[in-house]
Amino acid sequence: METAIIILAAGNSSRMGRPKQLLQYKGQTFLEIAIQAAVQTSFSPIIVVLGAHAKKILHVHNHPTITFVINEDWEKGMSSSIATGMNVILKDFSDTENVIITVADQVHITSTILEDLYHTFKSENKNIVTSHYLQTTGTPALFNKKYFNNLLNLQGSGGAKNIIKQHVDDVSSIPFELGHIDIDTATDYHNLINHQ
């Protein structure tokens, strides 16, 4: 069963003041951490959606096995980036059965977490599997093809959360203890670096 991964890395990091995809943590850029977690799984294709700062980011990241796409409408928010990634999957990788959506600023992401989403999907027969942290659920999250049209037609900045809310009876989740640590501001980054 083909499972694709979409890494969302199109934002302009307005609260950070510089592209957070290129910030370093433990010797790797944030985006590289997400890419390595994806590459270490058995899943393919892996699609990275860029937007703001795309040239700068592409200059630093070159992976022959990864499809980089640019969301020209990145300013419309996360939903437009998900739709950009889904368009590539439906057009070029039409045998895809599931898609895992993940982001470039969860620095504690691992291949194990991505694999766990799939194993839970297989064992619990739920068509959406989310990550659970701090009383909430979010990315990375797996969606079966049953929801591909929903993902393709998302609007606004909320990403896929609305799909999850509308179909709670078809959702399972896995624990991702450090999933709440996403880096949005210079203070977040400072705290991260000082605690590594």
Rank of each mutant, 00 (worst) to 15 (best):
residue 61 H to L: 12
residue 32 E to W: 02
residue 46 I to T: 03
residue 4 A to C: 03
residue 146 K to Y: 06
residue 24 Q to F: 15
residue 154 L to Q: 06
residue 177 E to C: 11
residue 145 K to V: 09
residue 140 P to L: 01
residue 27 G to F: 05
residue 146 K to E: 13
residue 46 I to P: 00
residue 20 K to W: 11
residue 175 P to N: 09
residue 189 Y to R: 01
residue 162 N to Y: 15
residue 55 K to R: 09
residue 7 I to G: 01
residue 61 H to Q: 05
residue 115 E to A: 10
residue 132 H to E: 11
residue 32 E to S: 09
residue 176 F to Y: 05
residue 58 L to N: 12
residue 19 P to M: 04
residue 51 G to K: 01
residue 171 V to Y: 04
residue 172 S to W: 00
residue 55 K to A: 11
residue 162 N to T: 15
residue 64 P to L: 10
residue 122 K to V: 13
residue 192 L to M: 06
residue 52 A to R: 08
residue 67 T to P: 06
residue 157 S to H: 15
residue 62 N to G: 10
residue 2 E to M: 12
residue 91 K to C: 11
residue 110 T to H: 01
residue 141 A to D: 04
residue 42 S to C: 13
residue 76 K to C: 08
residue 32 E to A: 10
residue 106 Q to W: 07
residue 47 I to H: 01
residue 24 Q to L: 14
residue 15 R to N: 14
residue 112 T to N: 13
residue 177 E to I: 14
residue 163 I to A: 02
residue 174 I to P: 01
residue 132 H to R: 09
residue 123 S to H: 08
residue 131 S to K: 03
residue 97 E to H: 12
residue 139 T to C: 10
residue 98 N to W: 05
residue 155 Q to P: 09
residue 10 A to T: 07
residue 144 N to T: 10
residue 16 M to F: 05
residue 151 L to N: 05
residue 190 H to S: 15
residue 145 K to Y: 08
residue 11 G to H: 04
residue 111 S to E: 12
residue 79 S to A: 15
residue 18 R to Q: 11
residue 26 K to H: 04
